[in-house]
């Protein structure tokens, strides 16, 4: 599958990544070769095959809606790049 510069820019935007001009060419070439490598999967007839998302049979696990953990707020905020009044501080989101 041919990957264009626009493809990579589009996907980079989705992934919230910035691609610098000096890394663009190699990145496009690398991603193209990996996607091309994956193109071989189309050789296999999977018309009547169901996808497997969990190799070992898995069932959704539920529990009672009761608070069972007790973390210290300051501990939870200890890795925050920016905080204020017990909250994470972020740039303005809404105009």
């Amino acid at each position: 599958m041919k990957i264009t510069s626009q493809d990579v820019e589009y996907v980079a935007n989705l992934a919230r990544l910035k691609i610098h001009d000096d890394e663009k060419d190699k990145l496009i070439a690398d991603i193209e070769s990996i996607i091309e490598f994956a193109d071989v999967l189309s050789e296999v007839d999977t018309e009547n095959i169901e996808p497997t998302y969990h190799a070992i049979k898995a069932q959704n696990v539920l529990r009672e809606d009761i608070v069972t953990n007790n973390y210290d707020r300051d501990e939870l905020l200890s890795n925050a790049p920016s905080k204020q009044d017990g909250c994470f501080e972020v740039p303005k989101v809404v105009e």
């Binding site: 999967l41 999977t46 169901e50 996808p51 497997t52």
Partner: peptide
């Protein structure tokens, strides 16, 4: 989705 079908295979 194709890769997950290959997973089944």
């Amino acid at each position: 989705k194709k890769a997950q079908k290959i997973r089944t295979v």
